[in-house]
């Protein structure tokens, strides 16, 4: 699947939804709970969550691949966890900032 910044995707097997913040221009094998992510407006195939991809997603957290070329924002949490080509995405640590507004 090719991704564009701003695209919204959902898990096929759990409640997880994400927005693409940045993505390489490649055909990506992006999964959640072990099953392919689908367009947010599309049908979720359903099925069981792969036990190896069941660490959950947290709303408001950003997830990146190893070289940080792919970045997703979790907009709805779920039980499955995100992976690219089978390798789990990791939490991007945010630097705590003082409230300025």
């Amino acid at each position: 699947m090719e991704l564009k910044a701003g695209s919204r995707l959902k898990s096929g097997v759990c409640d997880t939804q994400v927005m693409v913040i940045a993505a390489p221009v490649d055909d990506l094998d992006l999964t959640c709970g072990g099953a392919a992510l689908v367009d947010v407006a599309g049908d979720a195939p359903g099925g069981a969550i792969d036990a190896d991809h069941k660490n959950g997603t947290q709303i408001g957290k950003r997830y990146v691949n190893e070289d940080a070329t792919l970045e997703l924002l979790c907009t709805k949490p779920g039980e499955g966890s995100l992976a690219l080509g089978g390798a789990p995405l990791t939490l991007k640590e945010a630097k705590a900032l003082p409230s300025s507004d």
Binding site: I21, A96, L97
Partner: peptide, 24 residues
């Protein structure tokens, strides 16, 4: 543009970082 405002917020604010008592 939406990309500017969303980038600003995601880059500077933690989602649900405030407690229920907080008020601005």
């Amino acid at each position: 543009r939406h990309k500017h405002m969303v980038s600003y917020i995601l880059g500077s604010v933690e989602f649900m970082g405030a407690s229920e008592e907080d008020a601005a």
